[in-house]
């Protein structure tokens, strides 16, 4: 469970987050939508203590993230926008193993987690392949596997599929669906909800650093358009 209370964050004296409160239950599929500059990225980076709040608090499973970053980072897995900058090894298996290695797990457990995470994103038995030779869609899925290898309760994806074509996005989204079906919570951060609106349990709209609305998908369409987020039109995907 992710609990956000009265969160304030400032960059160079400017308020990027201005009193955000939010609760995300285990296993929930949440779309966090907002236009560029609304504070989405700043908010989710607090979930695993990559940023510390100026006021307010984020709790992961009841423990403040800033007090126990290891717990926050194992419980909330992060997938960032450009996969190329988040890979830390030249080959698929070595990259996915990076997180479990940092946890000090033994080699058998690391191998098991790598195999399982790659299996979950349809990349089984491709440990030895060079990441730079994969397609964009495959890279996005390996990035997801890198987060999954920590066995997180929540997976946070920050504009993860930018620049991917529809078949690549569809394939990655299907993997998210099956993860969600197995109980992993998904937090999908985007300024374009067309692919994900129907999948979500809830849509949280962020505008100028505050929560503008927090609604079921069907009720959120109109409000999303108001804050300049692209929504599925009639006849579209």
């Amino acid at each position: 469970m992710i609990t956000v209370r009265d969160l304030v964050h400032e960059f160079d004296g400017e308020r990027v987050l201005d009193g955000v409160s939010l609760t995300i239950a285990d296993g929930e599929w949440v779309v966090l939508a907002g236009p560029n500059g609304s504070g989405k990225t700043t908010l989710v980076r607090q979930f695993n203590a990559l940023l510390e709040p100026d006021a307010g608090e984020v709790q992961i499973g009841g423990v403040p993230a800033a007090e126990n970053p290891v717990r926050a980072r194992t419980s909330v897995g992060m997938v960032f926008q450009s996969p190329r900058d988040q890979f830390v090894a030249a080959t698929v298996g070595a990259d996915v193993a990076f997180g479990p290695e940092n946890l000090g797990l033994d080699h058998d457990e690391i191998d098991r987690r790598v195999a399982e995470a790659l299996g979950a994103v349809n990349m089984a038995d491709r440990e030895e392949e060079r990441i730079d030779e994969l397609s964009g869609g495959e890279q996005a899925r390996v990035a997801i596997a890198g987060a999954l290898a920590m066995e997180p309760d929540h997976l946070v994806l920050d504009e993860p599929f930018t620049g991917l074509d529809w078949p690549a996005r569809r394939s990655a989204l299907q993997r998210l669906d099956s993860l969600a079906a197995d109980g992993t919570g998904i937090v999908f951060v985007t300024h374009d909800v067309r692919d994900v609106l129907d999948r979500a349990d809830r849509v949280v709209g962020l505008e100028s650093g505050t929560v503008a609305f927090d609604l079921p998908p069907d009720d959120a369409r109109e409000r999303l358009a108001e804050i300049d987020v692209r929504v599925p039109g009639p006849g579209a995907g």
């Binding site: 499973g61 126990n68 970053p69 290891v70 717990r71 194992t74 419980s75 940092n102 946890l103 000090g104 066995e151 309760d153």
Partner: peptide, 12 residues
């Protein structure tokens, strides 16, 4: 579940 690592992992 994740509690077990918190004490042993020495973050950079």
């Amino acid at each position: 579940m994740s509690q077990e690592y918190s004490d042993s992992v020495d973050l950079v």
